[in-house]
Every structure is written in C-alpha cells, then in structure tokens.
Nucleic acid binder design. Structure first.
Lengths: 119, 119
DNA sequence: CAAACATATGAATAACTGTTCATATGTTTA
DNA sequence: TAAACATATGAACAGTTATTCATATGTTTG
C-alpha cells in the first residue's frame, strides 16, 4: 500500500485519480438507496422496541400495542414499515395477525449497533 | 419452550404475563434511543456514500465533496453527524482535515445490511 | 499581516416522518 | 346477518432533517 501521504487539497490531490479510484468501488445508486432505506427502518426507537419484543416471542398487534404502551394504529403503521423492509412477517390467525421476525439478520444488525454504542 | 400457542387477543393473551415477560428483556430507554440514533446515521445515502469512500481511503473534505459531487458545506454537515456517532474521525493536517473510519463496526454493520437486502 | 485556501457553522427552506384520529377492512360469534 | 373484535389505512399535524447560502474560523503562504 505505497500510496504517498495524502496532501490536500491542491492539485496534487484535487481532481486526482484517488477520486475516480474510490468511486469505482461505490455500489450503484439503487443499492445505496436501498441500504439507506433499510437503516432508516432501524432508525426509530418504536420500531427497535417492536423488534426487541419479537426477539422474545411472536405476538399479535394488540399485545404489541400493550407491551409498548402505544395505540394500535401507531403499531400497525410501524409494522407495515418493518414488513416492507422484510424484517418481520405477519400471518393471520383468526381475528388476529401474529407478527414474528423474518430472519436473523435483524438480530445481528442490532447486536452490532449495540456493540458500537457500548464501546 | 412449552409456551401454549398464541391465542389473541381476548383475556387469554391480553394483559398477560407475556407482555411483562417480554418487557423485562427490553433495554432501557436511553439505550434504545442511542441505538435508534446510531441507525439513523446510517439511514442517509449521502452518509453511506461517505463511508464507502472512506472504506477505500482516508480523505479530506474537499475531495470527498468532489468524489460525491456535492458541495463542501453539505459534506461538512454530514461529517459532523458521522463524527458525533463516532463512525469517523478527523485529524487536521495543514489546511485540510483528513477523515477516516473510526473502527470496523462500520463495515460490519453495512455489510450485514447489504446481505439483508440481497437476500 | 494580508490574501488565499480549507473547513465549519448558523439560518432558512423544502421534503420527509411518526403519531393520532376517524374509519374501513377482515374475521368470528351470537 | 348483525354485532363485536382485531387490524389496516388515509388524512392531518407537528416535529425532524438534508441541502443550500452566506459567512465565520482556522491554517498557510507571500
């Protein structure tokens, strides 16, 4: 890695190959957008709390609402967002809809985040 | 794990021990807030792009602006947010400030996100 | 020290987001 | 089928956020 020391920001570095090199490793715009959208979903404490509840047990909407002490509509709206991001799935069971975690990426991502803030 | 099948949402489940059990595993409010704040930082494609650039090379602000084709002020504002979240660090070097990744959690979190959306 | 360069920052604005309220949809039960 | 229950959804509102512009701060150079 014999890149000479960074010297900014005169002609040496400005408009340099570095900029184009770095951009060649950039994922395409769609993927960047999707990635940001995914993290946006984690970026709300209500949704995080819903996920933590579902770590422990699958649960219907009204009990989620009770557990989080929020009204049912707010929970439903947030579940919709989590479902669109494929972080949770819901199946109807009689009158209720039971929600559960979609896969284990959810845990990993949250655990990594938790590790980071506990550094 | 002999929990009886979920039966929602009459008295059987509503107000049940499940709700309190689940809440006993909930991190405290401050941690939930911090976690959401952290993911919020990842939830913007400009900041994601900055991080991708820094995966490849440390870089000064004006070159980041050039690489992302955005004005310097926008980049500075976003770098401030990334720095507050301890995802990047900046060191002054002459007239410039060179930014680089703070640690490897950043990569792990982004990689996990990428894995999820590519399922 | 003045001029030039690099970065940071406050204010303003437009766009977005989470919650609430009212109500609609879907399911069971009497 | 009507009533009751569980969930979903659209509209409205308040709060938040990313970008831009103008300008301030910090550093080097002549």
């Amino acid at each position: 890695m014999a890149m000479h020391d960074v010297e900014c920001c005169d002609e040496v570095c400005h408009h340099s190959d570095l900029v184009t090199k770095v951009n060649s490793h950039m994922p395409d715009e769609d993927e960047l957008y999707d990635l940001a959208e995914l993290f946006k979903v984690f970026g709300d404490s209500t949704r995080i709390r819903i996920l933590y509840v579902l770590f422990e047990s699958q649960m219907c909407v009204c009990d989620l609402a009770e557990a989080l002490n929020m009204n049912q509509s707010a929970i439903s709206h947030q579940l919709k967002i989590l479902k669109q991001a494929k972080l949770v799935t819901g199946r109807r069971e009689g009158k209720s809809v039971i929600y559960s975690l979609a896969d284990d990426h959810v845990r990993t991502i949250i655990d990594q985040g938790r590790e980071h803030i506990e550094e």
